[in-house]
Design a binder for these strands. Structure first.
Length: 836
RNA sequence: GCCCGGGUGGCGAAAUCGGUAGACGCAAGGGACUUAAAAUCCCUCGGGGGCAACCCCAUGCCGGUUCGAGUCCGGCCCCGGGCACCA
């Protein structure tokens, strides 16, 4: 912060304040008249258009763009938007070019489902709901550049979503595959793995998902797994979110090995293990029930049992399969594999605790060293060899697997090696003998992006009936427009409603001109949100998805704020697309959101989730009607820490409205006294400067609740002073600091203070560090750890002097009881601790 | 079960480089103004004791380190969130 003389006008910009107020302030603070007036004025004067003034740094503040639902915004949503608005307004005053825009995440299942429920059409409901959201944001005084409004369901936008899909395809990152996929009966569509929560659909937490085999489009996010993991270290995100991404990616190092199936020449069981050092302890193998090898190797006498088990496992929903403390179950296939390390034949079982989707869908079972294998071996009476011993020479426990690291025993050439060395030795051996190699395995799977639903961006692909196969729609034919359909209900058969529109489906092959059919699935809504943050930089660009220069200027996002519920879906996909664009040379940064914060959830007053069905939703409209937007905004900020959850309490809004009324009264008195320059004393000056320092710091650190508290504290001080005692600097800097938080009231007061231009164009007040310095401080005197006195001393008083003062204190003497101090600790200007 | 957060007055919360616990506000009580009410303003407000000066107790519980612990360490309890056989 630069120094500035306290008495001079605040900055060279704007007019010299006139002594005569040009505005009459009403006696009572009345938000109902002030707020609409200024909202209209700001709009008329284009106050919040994005500026790119040279010589100023840029700041891009972004909230996760909302799906505009029919329920409208609640006061909970504003707990995200208001703080971001304050940051945007503050940064603008602090000399930044600010980009703050809003758009609608309008494609996707929620919009479609809601329209179906209301027996309406999303092309009608989406604009209507979005208009309502926009209205609510406007009456809340949020300063967005509405000329940059975007809508992911408009052809101008989804043209580029399709374009990005094609780019991924051309880079080998989009592919079609047949797979057994999660299906939600309520959504009537396929879900990505991330969208399955506790075996249920993420939107319908009471609807267990089931599996369906369908040919689908996938995005090869696994190709970026390592980079998505590594780059987490370079970004400033809440640690829990990073951790969730790390866990989701689930990197583990180990080896992939293969054992031949006895009696089936050429057939082998390939498997991944993180503990290759335990191979000598492998006494059986387990395949996932869905493993393709199962049908080939199962012996005649075991076939019936195996088939029964497989069909049962397939029928089980995920929720059953994951149910807690389930006993291990499995069936022997009758086949054996050769453990190439022990040269023994070991039985091959199938069991549902081995998942087809992870690793190779097969494991080597080392029951002595793995608890799950141990339980399985116990259950079926299989051998449990011990091949790792504790490092300290103690005996390993008998009643469980010894899973810790240690020293290899009963392990041929590994004997005596520490686990880490043994792992390396096995890898080397496996590579020499060509039976395996070191491998890294990931939990993350590719992103399934197809949806069998109407309300989404059509996937721009064509299937040639001739010889061309799958052909991407040429860029110049984009967008593939979503046809208007009256009846767009999902069929439930697994086919998209678009399949029922022959004019859409039937087309010609872009390559050979012969007959062809279009892909009828639509893109997952998360495709839209994987690049929208780029679009705000040049929202009307129609030749390319974004203007490179605009993106180079504005991106990456300086502050991204949204709910923690997007920890692994949206935030992972958006990061991946960004990296792909970086690789394609389209952008110059690898991470879209270097700084992320999660706003805390606002629960209803009853502690429950705000929902229409519970009838506990509080709307900003109602609060604004009752208390005004500025009071609502202040309470959103003051309620509690911005990133922590809290319960709604309407009484608080009444409190902040009362506060604004007191500010109003103070300014009105000051204006009424002729807005004097004043003659503030040192204390008043110091308080004014310290308030600027503290409030600035708190806003920078997103500590809005304490910023408001500091403002209230300062009001309590200033309100007791006569206008000339307060003086112009204290009053005007106060109103300026309040302006981002209570923009309407402050605009009104600013004009009344004699300024002809908007307060929101004014520079942020500066403080003089020299004037914030304290001359005296309170030093706490402790005797045996308890506070016994407080001393007012001059800053920097010598220890001897402080000690003498302390020892002279009656209360200190009393508690010393005549004893000599054994030890004295002095923390300069803070505390003197006497041990007797 | 494992991994993250978090437990401070009647309530929302401040204070975390170890140094005055409860700033700021809400609610409550008392008072002023008013014919009255609303609004506004003033006072009190963690618990206990004392006329007072002051004293004792108190940041989920138990222990530890320290001159000094809401803050650090160990063990537990409760609440919220995430993951859930990942080989």
């Amino acid at each position: 912060m630069e120094r500035s003389p306290s008495h001079a006008k605040l900055d060279g910009r704007g007019e010299e304040p006139t002594a005569q107020a040009t505005y009459e302030m009403d006696e009572r603070y009345d938000p109902k008249t002030i707020e609409p007036k200024w909202q209209q004025d700001w709009e008329r004067t284009n106050l919040y258009l994005t500026r790119e003034e040279p010589g100023r740094p840029k700041f891009y503040v972004l909230e996760m763009f909302p799906y505009p639902s029919g329920a409208g915004l609640s006061v909970g949503h504003l707990h995200n938007y208001v703080p971001c608005d304050v940051v945007g307004r503050y940064k603008r005053m602090a000399g930044f070019n600010v980009l703050h825009a809003m758009g609608w995440d309008a494609f996707g299942l929620p919009a479609e489902n809601e329209a179906l429920l209301k027996q309406s059409h999303p092309t009608e409901t989406v604009p209507r709901y979005a208009a309502n959201f926009k209205h609510q944001l406007k009456i809340s005084g949020c300063a967005y550049d509405w000329t940059r409004e975007i809508n992911s369901s408009s052809p101008e936008y989804y043209k580029w979503t399709q374009w990005f899909f094609l780019m991924l395809y051309k880079r080998g990152l989009a592919y079609r595959a047949l797979g057994s996929q999660w299906w939600c009966d309520q959504c009537r569509t396929i879900l990505a793995n991330e969208q399955v929560v506790n075996g249920c659909c993420w939107r319908h937490t009471n609807t267990p998902v089931s599996k369906k085999d369908l040919e689908q489009w996938y995005i090869r996010i696994t190709a970026y797994a390592d980079r998505l993991l590594e780059d987490l270290d370079s970004i400033d995100w809440p640690e829990p979110i990073k951790l969730m991404q790390r866990n989701w990616i689930g990197r583990s190092e180990g080896a992939e090995l293969a054992f031949p199936v006895t009696g089936h020449p050429g057939k082998e069981v390939r498997f991944f293990t993180t503990r290759p050092d335990t191979v000598f302890g492998v006494s059986f193998m387990v395949l996932a029930p869905e493993h393709p090898l199962v049908a080939e190797i199962t012996t005649a006498e075991n076939r019936a049992a195996v088939e029964r088990y497989v069909s049962e496992a397939r029928r089980q929903s995920e929720i059953e399969r994951m149910s807690t403390v389930k006993e291990k179950t499995g069936v022997f296939t009758g086949a054996y594999a050769r453990n190439l390390f022990t040269n023994k034949d070991i039985p091959i079982w199938i069991a549902d605790y081995v998942l087809m989707g992870y690793g190779t869908g097969a494991i080597m079972a080392a029951p002595g060293q793995d608890q799950r294998d141990y339980e399985f071996a116990r259950q079926y009476g299989l051998e449990i060899p011990r091949v790792t011993a504790p490092q300290d020479g103690s005996t390993p426990p008998d009643e469980r697997a010894f899973t810790e690291l240690g020293v290899a025993i009963n392990s041929g050439f590994l004997n005596g090696m520490k686990t880490a060395d043994a792992i390396k030795a096995v890898c080397r051996y496996a590579e020499d003998k060509k039976i395996g190699k070191p491998t890294i395995s990931y939990r993350i799977r590719d992103w399934l992006i197809s949806r069998q639903r109407y309300w989404g961006s059509p996937i721009p692909m064509i299937y040639c009936k001739g010889a061309c196969g799958i052909v991407p729609v040429p860029d110049e034919q984009l967008p593939v427009r979503l046809p208007t359909m009256k009846e767009y209900q999902p069929s439930g058969t697994g086919r998209s409603p678009l399949a029922n529109v022959p004019e859409f489906v039937n087309t010609t092959c872009p390559k050979c001109g012969g007959p062809a059919e279009r892909e009828t699935d639509t893109l997952d809504g998360f495709a839209c949100s994987s690049w929208y943050f780029l679009r705000f930089a040049s929202p009307h660009e129609d030749k390319v998805p974004f203007d490179r220069k605009a993106v180079d200027y504005w991106l990456p996002v300086d502050l991204y704020v949204g709910g923690a519920e997007h920890a692994v879906m949206h935030l992972l996909y958006a990061r991946m697309w960004t990296k792909v664009m970086y690789d394609a040379g389209m952008i110059g940064f690898k991470e879209p959101f270097p700084v992320l914060r999660n706003q805390g959830m606002v629960w209803a007053a009853d502690g429950q989730k705000m929902s229409k069905s519970k009838g506990n939703v509080v709307t900003p409209d109602a609060m604004i009607e009752k208390y005004g937007a500025d009071a609502l905004r202040l309470w959103e900020l003051f309620m509690g820490p911005f990133d922590e959850p809290t319960n709604w309490n309407e009484d608080g809004v009444a409190g902040t409205e009362r506060y604004l009324g007191r500010v109003w009264t103070m300014v009105r008195r000051y204006v009424g006294a002729g807005a004097p320059e004043g003659n503030p004393n040192a204390e008043t000056l110091k308080r004014a400067h310290k308030t600027i320092r503290t409030v600035t710091d708190h806003i920078e650190r997103l500590r809005f609740n304490t910023a408001v508290a500091t403002m209230m504290d300062q009001l309590n001080y200033l309100a007791r002073l006569k206008p000339e005692e307060a003086g112009r600097f204290a009053i005007e800097s106060y109103v300026l600091m309040l302006a981002p938080m209570a923009p309407h009231a402050c605009e009104e007061m600013w004009r009344a203070l004699g300024h002809g231009t908007s307060i929101h164009l004014e520079p942020w007040p500066r403080f003089d560090p020299e004037l914030t310095r304290e001359e005296t401080v309170t030093v706490v005197v402790q005797v045996n750890g308890k506070v016994r006195d407080r001393l007012e001393i001059a800053v920097g008083t010598a220890e001897d002097e402080v000690r003498a003062m302390a020892l002279a204190s009656e209360n200190v003497k009393k508690h010393l009881g005549g004893k000599e101090p054994r030890k004295v600790i002095y923390v300069p200007d803070k505390l003197l601790s006497i041990v007797a």
